[in-house]
Simulated scan of single mutants.
Amino acid sequence: MSNATTNDYSDTPCDNDYSLEMTRFIVQKILVPFITSIGFAGNLLCIIVLSHKSMVSSTNCYLTALATFDISYLIFSFTLSLKHYDVVNSLTVYTYWYPYGRTLTDICSNVSVCLTVTFSLERLIAVCYPMKGRVICTPQRARFITFLVVTFAIISTIPEFFEMKTVRIENNKTVVLKNAETDFAKTDAYKIIYYHYLVLTFTFLPFILLSTFNGILVRTVYSAMKIRKRMTNSYSSYKQNARRQTEQNRITIMLIGVVIVFLLCQSPNAALILYLTYIDSNDMRLTACEANNVKIAGNVVNLMDVKRSTYCHSPCPALDLALTMYQPTR
């Protein structure tokens, strides 16, 4: 989440000021536009492929929704990176847009997290309880659950719209627009209760659930592959079922890869949040150099989140999903 790395620290000159500026230049002006472009194309291709009538399935419903919010996340986060261009940052319209863009970015990120947990649970049910999975995991139910998950994430993030405001500051008869924290955002209830609710709900709890689900899926797929290998030369009817099971395992392995990338990209964010929480809970104040290190880490963490949205729906996985998950309309 972007608000995990945007704390205000001292602007005192420091030895690593140059390192911070170089990090911002490389991340915000080179890597973010490049990765965003690839991610936009990959997500768009994924949406086109998975929304085809021949691709109707519960898993595809979740993946289509995930790709939609990932592409939205990439667009909104890219607009935030424009803050580092003086020409754009000085525009009045951009100053007014920034607080909204920041919240919309967090909404898309939180929805993506929830959808990743949801389709991992759906795949767990389909793999571990195949008979029940055919009844439970239907496209209609997937659409309804997606609606509930998206609604929950949006409602949970709405208070962030009241976190910042645009104020006019007069300086030597010149009016300057600046974004500042609202009184609402400075209350203890918001800073402690709501912030920790966001961190727990959209960072640590999903991390634990995804790690657990993924561990069970890996073990189940591995066991199924061992059994199928032993029975390869059995009855022809079994071979037909084995082919179907192989296709399901390929889908599961594909989604396991998506979740692993998600966990790897989210781990630094979780570590940074733990560090900042420790600093805040102990009323510790960072030095200028330490604050710069946190900002450098924040740029890298946010870049990894953009990379996660890009990789999980890059063109190659999208095409592989098209070949792997093809099945007649139900």
Rank of each mutant, 00 (worst) to 15 (best):
L264T: 10
N282W: 04
N302G: 10
T246G: 11
V87S: 14
I253H: 06
I169D: 11
K226N: 10
D70S: 12
A65R: 01
H196Q: 08
V117P: 01
S156L: 02
P206N: 14
L115E: 05
T64Q: 03
V258D: 04
G39V: 07
T5E: 12
E163W: 06
G298A: 15
S267P: 02
Y194P: 04
I145W: 02
K226S: 09
T174Q: 08
S37D: 06
F34P: 04
M325L: 01
S314F: 05
V149N: 05
I169K: 14
V49L: 13
T95M: 14
Y238E: 15
V259K: 00
Y98Q: 15
A224G: 03
R24N: 14
A126Y: 09
K83M: 04
I26V: 14
Y100N: 12
Y194G: 12
K229G: 07
I136R: 00
Y278N: 15
N172P: 01
P99L: 05
V259Y: 03
I155L: 08
A67M: 03
Y235E: 13
S77I: 00
F162R: 05
F184M: 13
F144M: 10
S19I: 09
L319W: 07
M284C: 10
Y190P: 01
V175P: 00
A142F: 08
I107R: 00
N214C: 12
N214W: 01
V27N: 13
P33K: 03
A271V: 07
G298M: 02
F76S: 11
T6V: 07
T212Y: 15
V175R: 00
H196D: 13
R143P: 02
E170M: 04
V261L: 05
E163R: 13
C137M: 14
V27T: 12
L319V: 06
L205G: 13
Q245L: 07
F144A: 12
T157P: 03
L217N: 05
V32C: 10
N241Y: 15
T6H: 11
V113T: 14
L31G: 13
L50Y: 08
N249L: 01
E160H: 04
K53P: 01
V127G: 01
M164D: 02
M164K: 07
R243E: 14
A185P: 02
D15N: 14
N269G: 08
E160D: 09
S120E: 06
T277D: 15
R285W: 03
A41S: 08
K83R: 04
I193D: 12
R330L: 04
T118E: 12
Y278L: 09
N16T: 12
D86C: 01
N302D: 07
E163G: 09
T174A: 04
Q266N: 08
R168A: 10
R330P: 15
L274K: 14
F262R: 00
A185E: 03
L20C: 07
I145A: 07
M164R: 09
I253S: 12
V113H: 01
G133I: 01
T105F: 00
C14N: 14
L286C: 07
K307P: 00
Y9A: 12
I169V: 07
L286R: 00
T146V: 08
T146I: 08
K178M: 06
